[in-house]
Nucleic acid binder design. Structure first.
Lengths: 233, 233
DNA sequence: CACCTTCATTGACTCAGGTCAACAGTTCAC
DNA sequence: GTGAACTGTTGACCTGAGTCAATGAAGGTG
């Protein structure tokens, strides 16, 4: 069991807003689990035995073709929810991109709890709707955008989801972040190869829209221009 | 208001399983509306004023770049739900591909009703989770599959969602259906141009996996081989 | 510190799918 | 039934991104 009262994501995860009793009860069902970078928690097509809240760390959701081509279909940040409630097999693999800490529930226990708690289901619905919107916008990127437009979109999205880059930029602060994905993974999210990712990053750097002080750090130097590129205008 | 008792999709839409009283109440909020082929009900970015159940007909959900490139992000069939509950602007346009009949609710009335009816929210959650799975599998197609693999995937998906092609095939029946999308729309779902769609269809026909007796009719002649192609094996 | 491994960049070349253009089949109006 | 307007097919050519291969830069390890 878990003590939810000091949970670092307690006010933004799906648990937020539950009554003290409900939270106590949910705490009895969950257990904290650490996973190491690179570790795969769930494999695509496996029975969906667990669901979890992300406490810290970043994970990827991915799907592969029969011959091994992989597409990353989601990137999951702290306070996000992972797993497929109310379904018997997992539609994608879940792999840690960094060391991570999760609050894990067996799916059956979670499903049962959710059925008793409409407010939890409501929050889950909100999140799922948001994820669906995000996935569909990514379909536009994958279906219609050029390589440089894709890279621009990714940089802005990651900047916003990691530390709220837009707000920083608006406040006049420098917009710098650590990219949690390596070049291969960036390619797998964007439907591009590692070489194309590298070339386009170099191009954006040459155009002074971004800077890349080292392999993981990204500085957004000209958000307006990058945003224009991302929107494919 | 609407009489739900004779609704043709009443047992498969989200309304299924509601109590007689709840259904009566929901019926008072909804109204039937006919839309003509080609008509756009909601524009991307507009305030999301309505949600609806599809009674008959087929509609597309689409998103565009600033310079007008369009991606179809969903195709909606009878008994499916459209609109974005609990959100103030629509993330995509909704356009009828055939004449269609809808059961429309104002979003505010629907949201209010849903909040009172956890079982409705639960059904909405199930559907949204399924849609999310579908969208993510489509991301694999858009990011990693070749043109012929995409076409094969689309033909099988439409065959299954229209008249349950898999079941027909298993029962030894001929697998024939009317494709609700024209070549341009097929391209817009698949992230391909109209010419590539046409060429790949001709190729599949030449390989005797399908037949195309006229521009809208598709016959699946060799489901096993088509399926293998779609899985990218 | 030197060595090794891993990850990223760059270059040369190829090719799947896009673009542009001609044409053929359907559908519909009159 | 004839012609006009779409919609789809086919061909020739082009190009953006993929492939293959060499090189370079960063960490990690003993």
């Amino acid at each position: 069991m878990t003590d939810c009262s000091h949970c670092p994501v307690g006010d933004s995860a799906i648990c937020a807003g539950l009554s003290a009793e409900a939270l106590e009860c949910l705490g009895h069902l969950g257990r904290k689990q650490k996973v190491r970078r690179g570790q795969t928690l769930v494999w695509e097509g496996d029975e969906a035995l667990v669901v979890a809240n992300v406490i810290s760390g970043i994970l990827k959701l991915s799907i592969s073709t029969a011959d091994g081509r992989e597409q990353i279909v989601g990137v999951v940040f702290p306070s996000d929810f992972i797993g497929r409630p109310f379904g018997k097999e997992s539609p994608h693999s879940v792999t840690a991109l960094t060391d991570a800490e999760l609050c894990v529930f067996t799916r059956s226990a979670f499903d049962g709890f959710a059925r008793q708690h409409p407010d939890l289901q409501n929050r889950l619905l909100m999140r799922t709707l948001t994820e669906l919107d995000r996935a569909r916008h990514w379909m536009l990127l994958l279906g219609k955008k050029t390589a440089s437009e894709r890279i621009a979109s990714l940089l802005l999205e990651v900047s916003d989801r990691m530390g709220d880059g837009a707000a920083k930029a608006a406040a006049g602060l420098p917009e710098v972040f650590e990219m949690p994905l390596d070049r291969q993974q960036m390619g797998d999210v964007l439907g591009l190869t590692i070489e194309t990712v590298s070339r386009q990053l170099t191009k954006l750097k040459g155009a002074e829209m971004i800077d890349l002080p080292n392999r993981r750090t990204v500085v957004i130097q000209d958000r307006a221009r990058l945003r224009n590129l991302a929107l494919a205008a």
